[in-house]
């Protein structure tokens, strides 16, 4: 584990791993996204109470999952960066933050548009919605803090502390529907199973996997950008394929 971490801590190794993994993530995520959208928007039957309005679930739930997953990943990467002083762990966290913010924004907007016909309102200050909104501010705050200092290492450390402390919001979001009386329904997917009908469930699971793979595709692009920016004076960057070498590009 530690050997693997230190190997990935090397900028040229991480750059090449991200470059090689990108096409796999790209094509599997795009195929699964297409399958999930056809399944969710066309093949799944309408809900007996919510009609076709429930189809927002195929956007809302995968985005919500990603909003939590990405911040958890950032918190772990930040802890690794602080404890083992791996600069590339901070680069991964910085590359992931804008993507997490995007997923959180989609969660809030899609949830709001789902809430209007089902609850009669776009927004209520209940525990689930408010804690998810706080998560969006945490993402924005992290990005602002990382870029606020002229010295990259100071920014990385400040951002890492924010990500680790901010991770407290993740269990609050998850358990908010149990801890408090909220308008928001309980979890649709659980490790113990789901009470959603199979014909409605499979597109949801496909979309969750598709969003996760899509995130890793875009993360691999952003990590390479972040490495090129942070290592711009390093000699290995100048001998890269697509830079000083023959081919390569933004796959």
């Amino acid at each position: 584990m530690f050997t693997w971490l230190h190997k990935m801590g090397s900028p040229p190794v991480l750059y090449r791993v991200a470059e090689r993994a990108a096409p796999w993530f790209k094509w599997t995520s795009l195929v699964l996204l297409a399958a999930g959208l056809v399944g969710g928007l066309i093949l799944a039957p309408p809900d007996y109470q919510q009609g076709d309005g429930f189809r927002i679930i195929y956007l809302h739930v995968p985005s919500a999952w990603m909003s939590l997953f990405v911040f958890a990943l950032m918190a772990v990467a930040s802890a690794v960066g602080l404890i083992w002083r791996l600069r590339m762990a901070h680069a991964v966290a910085a590359a992931a933050a804008p993507l997490g913010a995007g997923f959180t924004l989609v969660t809030l907007v899609a949830g709001s548009l789902w809430g209007k016909p089902m609850w009669g309102t776009y927004w209520v200050w209940d525990a689930r919605l408010t804690s998810e909104l706080i998560l969006l501010f945490l993402y924005l705050g992290f990005t602002a803090v990382v870029n606020a200092f002229p010295d990259q290492r100071t920014g990385d450390r400040a951002g890492a502390i924010l990500a680790i402390v901010g991770a407290v919001d993740l269990p609050i979001i998850h358990f908010s529907v149990k801890w408090w009386t909220t308008l928001h329904q309980g979890s649709s997917l659980k490790l113990s199973g789901s009470n959603i009908a199979g014909s409605m469930l499979w597109p949801l699971l496909v979309m969750v996997v598709a969003f996760t793979l899509y995130f890793f595709w875009i993360l691999s692009l952003r990590v390479r950008t972040e490495i090129l920016r942070r290592e711009r004076r390093a000699s290995w960057v100048l001998s890269l394929q697509g830079v000083g070498g023959a081919r390569g590009g933004a796959r």
């Binding site: 309005g53 927002i56 809302h60 995007g102 997923f103 899609a110 090129l228 920016r229 933004a250």
Partner: peptide, 29 residues
């Protein structure tokens, strides 16, 4: 009126983040 705007926003934000990441990498290269 609720479903399509939700998917439109989702598409713009998620596909936009992908487009932005590709453009950023091309510029860095």
């Amino acid at each position: 009126v609720y479903v399509w705007p939700a998917y439109a926003v989702g598409f713009v934000v998620i596909a936009g983040s992908g487009w932005n990441a590709r453009r950023g990498l091309q510029q860095a290269l």
